[in-house]
Nucleic acid binder design. Structure first.
Length: 569
DNA sequence: GGAACTAGCGCG
DNA sequence: AAAGCGCGCTAGTTCC
């Protein structure tokens, strides 16, 4: 049983709390002795903690070894409710306030930014004081209750808040990273580590080869415009230096150049400098930014956590005595689309393992590759090429699903707002966009302006078309993640001898989430709990499907493995 | 000498 | 082949 809802915030010179009843009335309030937040939270026990910004409050709790089961992140929920088309009539939540501020990033638990410790809100940050939090919580409850879709909005706010907890915990725990293995990959691929400023051996060799073919010993390889001119001089009429473009030409310079670009990418994005900066004590600790993407997907800040290249995944290595459960959802977005649109034909094609194979089996297209490119085209708004050619076949086979994305595109083109399944709405178009559309419609502008307006309308249509699907997929993933988190927390702690001390904040006493990337997660688990953790990950996927789509027969099969590395096969 | 920009490529 | 959505990051270039 929970002890209800408790708001935390600064109060006077210190910290205070306020316990709320179901109507949002304060039933008890007080100050937190000595500002000892961690002790207060630990002693209060189970509650739904309501606070301004998880990134502000939670890291210091984790640093003290205190984990909470549930919270309400007022900043994140404010952003959802403020913009949601599911919140009807004008409510206070729509008024411009300091709750519109961006969140705090990174609060390093070991050395917090000054403003993060002071209890004051940061520059242009959300307010952290108790009174403001209580008032905002009441506004949010009113907004949710006033909605005809209060069930969905409540679900979304709960999932979003759970995600905020997870983001902080995953940073605290870190992703186990084998520095020696990473260095082995670097040396094998690039050659031995160069002195500062130099090029690794294999890159230097390739550079020499390329310059020979370019007939210019001084040729610059890292500046696209200059490289393009060098290529033109030796008869390669490329329009850009992108690898797709270059690979179309036959010239002895192409192969070493493409290889050089590949190695250069590894060196600059994930080379030795990256290791030095981002991996310490055997952990990669990125800053996750919940809802950092307009669709509700997470973003990350620093270290490129969401872009770990496949070739480095074998450096993700579990602690001794521990292992990973690595799982991703097969074709999450089209499955979510089937659920949103109530498209039983698409749901039937999705039943079992491979949705694209199901589309082929239905006779809609001939090959799996065609099914994939057609489905991506439908969700992204492809109009040309093979993808654009195949989309009409999907329209015939899955009219309900296709109507949903086509309608979303039309709404967007006309300047309207679309929403995800649980009620996250896309931003309204900019005033500049709207003005350009009005002028084009009134045929007052030049032909160039009208062309531009038409193109921008199409851009926005493709955005809103994709928004509903990508955003709902993000909601499904949050529900999955939240369920995994709470069920892992209920597993028994392992004996001290089997714990992972480097998974900070006491998270190393039992299986914990270690990584999340849109439709994939990694659980770091003691060997003895690996099977239980795998079962939880699977069952949580089914649970997330039911939470969003009730009894609608769409399943969410996982590619799941228990392994010591995160390498993809 | 730094801010704002582009090109290119990694991830889903 | 690139196309059609959403990102972050680095290096180079341009502009103040």
């Amino acid at each position: 049983m929970t002890a209800g809802a408790v708001v935390l915030g600064t109060s006077g010179d210190g910290l205070g709390y306020a316990r709320l009843d179901a109507d949002g009335a304060i039933v008890e309030h007080g100050t937190i002795v000595d500002g000892d937040l961690a002790r207060f939270v630990a002693e209060t026990g189970a509650a739904r903690w309501i606070w301004s910004d998880t990134a502000h409050w939670y890291p210091r709790l984790l640093a003290a070894g205190v984990r909470v089961a549930r919270c309400r992140d007022l900043r994140l929920c404010h952003a959802i409710l403020r913009d949601s088309a599911f919140v009807g009539a004008p409510t206070e939540i729509r008024a411009a306030t300091s709750w519109d501020a961006a969140g705090e990033q990174e609060v390093d638990a070991a050395a917090p930014a000054l403003f993060a410790l002071s209890g004051e809100s940061g520059p242009r940050g959300v307010p952290h004081d108790l009174d403001a939090a209580v008032a905002e919580e009441v506004r949010q409850r009113t907004a949710v209750r006033s909605s005809a879709e209060h069930g969905r909005l409540e679900l979304l706010c709960a999932a979003e808040s759970a995600g905020a907890l997870i983001a902080a915990e995953m940073r605290a725990a870190g992703l186990p990273w084998d520095v020696a293995e990473h260095e082995r990959i670097l040396e094998e691929t690039l050659g031995s580590r160069p002195p500062a400023g130099g090029l690794p051996a294999r890159m230097a060799m390739l550079a020499g080869e390329i310059r020979t073919h370019l007939g210019d010993a001084q040729a610059t390889l890292d500046a696209p415009a200059k490289l393009l001119r060098s290529l033109h001089r030796v008869g390669v009429p490329a329009q850009s230096t992108s690898k797709w473009e270059l690979s179309r030409y036959e010239h002895p310079v192409i192969a070493p150049l493409l290889q050089y670009k590949r190695l250069s990418r590894l060196l600059t994005a994930n080379g030795w400098a990256w290791l030095d900066e981002w991996v310490s004590d055997g952990r990669f600790r990125p800053v996750y930014v919940p809802a950092g993407v307009v669709t509700g997907r997470w973003a990350s800040s620093g270290g490129g956590a969401l872009q770990i290249p496949r070739m480095l995944r074998q450096a993700v290595r579990a602690d001794e005595g521990w292992t990973f459960v690595v799982a991703d959802v097969a074709q999450l977005e089209p499955r979510v689309l089937a659920g949103m649109s109530n498209d039983l034909a698409l749901a039937r094609a999705a039943q079992g393992r491979d949705l694209y194979a199901g589309i082929v089996d239905s006779g809609t297209v001939a090959t799996r590759a065609e099914a994939k490119v057609a489905m991506l085209g439908a969700m992204y708004g492809a109009t040309t090429g093979e993808s654009g050619r195949l989309v009409p076949r999907l329209r015939r086979a899955y009219p309900r699903a296709m109507k949903l994305v086509d309608d979303a595109a039309r709404t967007g083109e006309q300047g309207g707002v679309v929403s995800t399944w649980l009620g996250r709405s896309c931003p309204a178009p900019s005033t500049r966009w709207a003005r350009a559309q009005r002028q084009a419609a009134g045929e007052t502008g030049t032909a160039v302006e009208r062309d531009r307006a038409r193109r921008e309308a199409g851009d926005r249509g493709r955005f809103t078309r994709n928004f509903i699907v990508q955003g709902t997929a993000a909601e499904w993933a949050l529900a999955w993640l939240g369920e995994v988190r709470s069920r892992l927390a209920a597993l028994d702690a392992v004996p001290t001898s089997e714990q992972a001390p480097r998974s900070g904040s006491g998270l190393g006493t039992r299986p914990h989430l270690a990584f999340f990337l849109h439709d994939e997660l990694i659980v770091h688990t003691p060997l003895r709990h690996a099977e239980a953790a795998a079962t939880i990950v699977r069952e949580a996927a089914a649970s997330a499907g039911r939470l969003l789509f009730g009894g609608f027969p769409i399943d969410f099969p996982l590619d799941l493995k228990v392994a010591d590395t995160a390498a993809k096969d």
